[in-house]
Simulated scan of single mutants.
Amino acid sequence: MANEKNIQIVQQIYSDFGKQNVEGVLNSLTDDISWNDAGYPGIPYSKKRNGKKEVMSFFMELGSTVSFTDFTPQEFYADNDAVIVKGFFEGKALGTGKSFASDWMHIWKFQGDKIYNFQAFFDTDKIIAAIH
């Protein structure tokens, strides 16, 4: 039952993200969230962040760097306090207009009904090629 509830929470996060409802995303996180988006130095938004304020800056930097034309979670797996999601995205870099596309993987870890840890994996080379 907890696995299904956790998947529903993560699905709501993706729905909120798609509607640009950052507040909705933040409401699903613990105050001391650890957020790690691939951590590649050539991608402005991609680094480790701690706390909701820093996660908000992630969304601001992401929105000023890229625009997604497709962001689709495809498969959801849950076990104990974790939800793993495989997906696909494509879009354009705002500064160059170059396109990118990549499969991705997200790991969401729960503490009760809130997420305390997020980790993203994607093809950083494709994003770098588009933004530079």
Rank of each mutant, 00 (worst) to 15 (best):
V55D: 05
G42C: 01
K19F: 01
I33P: 02
N3M: 10
V83Q: 01
F76N: 09
T65L: 08
Q74G: 05
V10N: 07
A130P: 03
E90L: 03
S28H: 15
V25W: 01
H106C: 05
L26E: 03
K5D: 13
N117F: 11
E54V: 08
I127C: 00
F89G: 10
E23G: 15
I13W: 02
T124G: 02
K92M: 03
F122A: 12
E75H: 13
G91C: 09
F71Q: 00
Q74C: 00
W108G: 01
S64L: 05
G42W: 01
P73S: 13
S67W: 01
S64Q: 14
A78W: 02
A2L: 10
I9R: 04
G97N: 11
A38M: 14
M105I: 15
G97S: 12
P44G: 12
G18W: 08
P73I: 11
W108S: 07
D37W: 03
V25E: 02
K98A: 11
F68K: 04
T124Y: 08
K86I: 11
L62S: 07
A101L: 02
I127G: 03
D81M: 03
F118W: 05
V85N: 05
Y14N: 14
K126V: 13
M1W: 00
E23T: 14
S57F: 04
D70C: 09
A78T: 00
F100H: 02
N27D: 15
